[in-house]
Nucleic acid binder design. Structure first.
Lengths: 222, 222
DNA sequence: CAAAAAATACGTGGTAGCACGTAGGGTAAG
DNA sequence: CTTACCCTACGTGCTACCACGTATTTTTTG
């Protein structure tokens, strides 16, 4: 029913997830929905970009957020910048507000949890394809709990973690002390402290307890 | 080819995962393998136990480790104790040695990562069904790296985290201080410190940095 | 080349987290 | 009833983490 620019009324999808099992599961879940066509699937952000270049007719990209290498959020930004007409639907295990906010800032049109049923998933795809948005119930609750409209505007700048910071974060996660990290990287302990401080600021965490959770959810550890 | 006690040569499977997408994905991945029959699927440990009681002919249970409520490890223990003939194949995102060791202690016959391909998964199922074991390459590496045969024998006692400890762990994860937790639970700050210490001892972590990772991997947070 | 960002580094100071030891009351299991 | 476990609680002391301010060198980017 919804008017679109593609010749037929079907919705063409690209699936992106590093787990073959999940890609396969989604594909098969959507098979009975005759108006939803999975025309391509990728196991990494890099591969997804290649497929986007060779598949001009895509309507919706369904992408996992936590992937090694290029994260789902980065991929979403790339899609927003290079193929603004394509709708992005995020798929994730988690629904902390930091992650949800990042997806919104990256231009995501919807956010579905991996616990979603077939019915919910296909509904979400049709909604975003029709130009609307869709959020799983738990995700919507997260958004309502923290009415931080500020974070979607102000904090939209750059929680970009640098290579060095990430390196230090990984050593922290392995329970190394500042001194140990300093000796391992041949830098001053003060420098490690500074990196630590910058990490906390960028992730808006109060301590390592929050930072580690951020790191795991964003797949920043090995 | 492998001789078995079931009338025909097919392997009867129970799938357990809280994510419908993954259950569906596995089911469809195994569909072409005519000797592997998915006869039941559950979305929780509780449901799995019910299905185990009503399906006597099961050969292999393929179960996800991180599920809300009853964890995969607990379920594996229950299967080992009540249906010792059934082979358990664990399925997980992670392969840290603590988790792998727990699965072995719980009587698991194999451990496959969620990144596994169709070929690897079906091979793993046939291996465990035939009485052998199977571990994904990364998992095997983990086992070889830490030849802590001690941990499989000595530490097999009880990293059992109590209800109260888990409650405190969740508050810690929300970045609350000892004092805040004490006030919230109407107990002394000293008591919170003791719980903290016991948590570190039971999980063999050096600090909260390690404990938080343990908690996330073991699905101990909300 | 100029501007911006990243990586490096120091000082001062507070306090929360953690080590280690000890112990009494409640409750469930043998 | 005894044993074991959980939850509760205190004391002492150390130090790693964190807050806040500042600044130079190197690299990247426009």
């Amino acid at each position: 029913m919804p008017a679109s620019s593609v010749p037929d009324t079907s919705i063409d999808l690209l699936l992106v997830d590093d787990h073959p099992m999940i890609v396969e599961g989604i594909r098969q879940m959507l098979l009975p929905e005759t108006d939803l066509r999975v025309v391509a699937q990728a196991n990494s952000g890099k591969q997804a970009l290649e497929l986007l270049a060779t598949h001009p007719g895509l309507d919706v990209v369904l992408l996992d957020l936590s992937m090694p290498g290029m994260s789902g959020v980065e991929l979403a930004c790339a899609i927003r910048d290079n193929w603004p007409a394509i709708r992005v639907l995020a798929l994730s295990m988690f629904h902390d507000h930091a992650t949800v906010a990042e997806v919104l800032e990256a231009g995501g049109a919807g956010y579905v949890l991996k616990t979603a049923s077939r019915a919910e998933l296909s509904l979400a795809i049709r909604q975003v394809a029709a130009g609307r948005t869709y959020f799983s119930q738990d995700v919507a609750d997260t958004l309502l709990q923290n009415r931080q409209i500020t974070s979607s505007l102000e904090a939209a700048d750059q929680p970009a973690i640098t290579r060095r910071e990430r390196e230090i974060l990984q050593l922290i996660a392995r329970e190394h002390s500042n001194l140990e990290i300093a000796e391992a990287l041949f830098i001053s302990e003060r420098t490690v402290e500074t990196h630590r401080r910058n990490l906390l600021a960028k992730t808006k965490c109060k301590s390592m307890v929050g930072l580690i959770q951020y790191a795991i959810r964003h797949n920043l550890l090995s």
